[in-house]
C-alpha cells in the first residue's frame, strides 16, 4: 500500500467519523436557529441531485445510455421497489438494451 494513500484514507475516515458522532456525544441542536437547521435538513436532497447530475450522463459510453438508465431507475423506483431491485433491475434492463442495440 502506498503511504500517501493510507494517510488519505485515514483522513477520509476521520472527517466522516467526526460529524457522525459529534452531535451524539456533544451537541444539542435545540439552540440552533430554525433557518440553519432547515438548510441542513435540505442538504441531502441537494447532494443527491448533485451526485446524479451531470455524472449520470457520463456513466455509460454515450449520454443517451446514461439518460436511459436514469429513466429506467426512476420508473422502477416509482413502483416502490426496494433499493436492490431498482439497482439490479436497471443494470439488467440496460444490459438488455446494450445487447439488442
Amino acid at each position: 500500500m502506498r503511504e500517501e494513500f493510507i494517510w488519505m484514507i485515514i483522513g477520509m475516515g476521520l472527517v466522516t467519523y467526526i460529524p457522525r458522532i459529534l452531535p451524539l456525544i456533544a451537541l444539542s441542536t435545540e439552540n440552533w436557529p430554525d433557518w440553519l437547521r432547515r438548510m441542513l435538513s435540505h442538504v441531502p436532497y441537494a447532494v443527491l441531485g448533485a451526485l446524479i447530475f451531470p455524472g449520470i450522463l457520463y456513466a455509460q459510453e454515450t449520454i443517451w445510455y446514461g439518460m436511459l438508465g436514469g429513466v429506467i431507475a426512476f420508473l422502477i423506483a416509482y413502483t416502490g421497489a426496494p433499493l436492490l431491485a431498482v439497482v439490479a433491475g436497471t443494470i439488467l434492463l440496460l444490459t438488455g438494451v446494450h445487447i439488442i442495440t
Partner: peptide, 21 residues
C-alpha cells in the same frame, strides 16, 4: 457488457433514494 451496465448502479441507487422522498 454487464460491467459496462454496472456503471449505472450508483446513479440508480441515488435515484432510488430520491424517488420515495
Amino acid at each position: 457488457i454487464l460491467q459496462e451496465s454496472m456503471g449505472i448502479a450508483l446513479y440508480a441507487l441515488f435515484i432510488a433514494l430520491l424517488v420515495p422522498s
